[in-house]
Nucleic acid binder design. Sequence first.
RNA 1: GCUCCGGUAGUUCAAUGGCCAGAACGCCGGGCUUUCAACUCGGAAAACCGGGUUCGAUUCCCGGUCGGAGCACCA
Length: 496
Amino acid sequence: MSVRVRIAPSPTGDPHVGTAYIGLINYCFAKRHGGKFILRVEDTDQTRCTPESAQAIYASLRWLGLNYDEGPDVGGDRGPYVQSERVKLDLYRKFAEQLVDQGDAYYCFCSARELDVMRKRQQANGEPIMYDRRHRGIDRNEARERAAKGEPYVVRMKAPLNGEFVYRDRLRKQPVVKGWKEIDDQVLLKSDGWPTYHLAAVVDDHLMGITHVIRAEEWLNSLPKHIWLNERLGFTAPEYVHVGLLRNADKSKISKRKNPTSLLWYRRQGFLPEALLNFLALLGHSHPEGKEKFSVEELAAVFDLDRINVAGPVFDLAKLRHLQGQWFRELSAERMKEEIHRAVDARIDQLLPMLKERMACGGDYLTQVEPFYADQVQPHADDLIPKGWDKADATAVLAEVQKLVKSYLAGDNPVWDAPSVETLLREAMTERSLVPEGATDAQRKGAALWQPKGLFMLLRVAATGRKESPPLFDTLAAIGGLKLVERLGHAQLKLR
RNA sequence: GCUCCGGUAGUUCAAUGGCCAGAACGCCGGGCUUUCAACUCGGAAAACCGGGUUCGAUUCCCGGUCGGAGCACCA
């Protein structure tokens, strides 16, 4: 039987590096065995999924060169490849009903509110959190009548009450063993009539002839449900293989708070697909000859699922940069020029509106734009001391602003655009320019520093190295928060 | 809390029931360069702990510990 594997991302938000990672593994596995690599979009959560996000997934996979043999925008004879379209064809309901008929599933009429109360109580009592199966014994015909009258319901699987589940994952030393009593009566069909992940994935994997499900470790715990569903539905289950999750530096599951997770970001940033893929390949897998730099084709030729290391690898951007450098420097002059053009173009769109008034010809762009690209700027110490200030004043204020920006950036989801930078600074100024009653002369003097005139020039010079620049807040926004913090620090050194 | 998974330098990955546990990134130092980068040479740096099996355990087994994941009408 020929190999058929799939990736099944959910189109919520930006396309994720994790998708690329799992995609790469599946892609190589398929190529290695002369099989098919399939993309299926799992958009059964009507509240969270968007078509734009699905488009971004297609575009990103194409950018990476992880071309799928079958998928939403390329077709195939096991389609459609988008679950919402499959819902319209009523592909899932009949399997849910089949299970109900077999006595392997049942209608449940609990409301969300009811379930919430139940969960809270379990939590308070330190009990395991799971559905208490109150409708499990419900009469099937009676239940269907209630449903026919319009009462909202879900269909739940009737998980075995006892016994053990054993499954061997080829990548794990020990077989996966789990007591059935730990396993919940999972919802299969939601009250909106759409399937949950569990039902949809099992049904589709079967219908699409998937032979190996290679997915992230986070699914390991629901493996019994999936095997059970296959069994009760009379399907031959695919082989399930679970690989480790990409991690942040602190070993938690990779998140956008702590790492760039959006494939869009890597593309925008100018990373080459070859380099990203090469880097991803190094995480969790190793080349049999110990090679470090290789193409996807090379990898596919030697790829061995059993060489995958299941411990979650920490995603290390520094290593990616190194590899990217290797690939980048090997580019032909022609291609390198293209890459540079792309990078510059992207930045021009952002910067041009604020720079154009200060330009008289195209070449001026190069001088105007320098502060926005440069790693460092070199302000003159003299320029860093506004009129009427002394060195200590400037240093103190720079340090204060630096601290302010730093803590702002460390906060929850910091927005860094002109309005937010302005708000941040103006609030700080208002606060600090207040003179408390009975203030000392020193306090009075300190407070006086937090006026736009001197402060804005100081920040401008520290941030750009120049006394003239586009409007301050636009400038600070375009430079970026992290770089600004660096430059504020650098300016303090200049004053020493 | 319950269940499951994992543990070799800071990070990613090797090899190995027995010789000095090997590489890459990062770090430190040297060379090249006006400088930086690239390149190159060198250096520091690792088997979670305890028990068992064995002549011998980083490797196999058990327990602990630490880390992670899952416990939704999300996927």
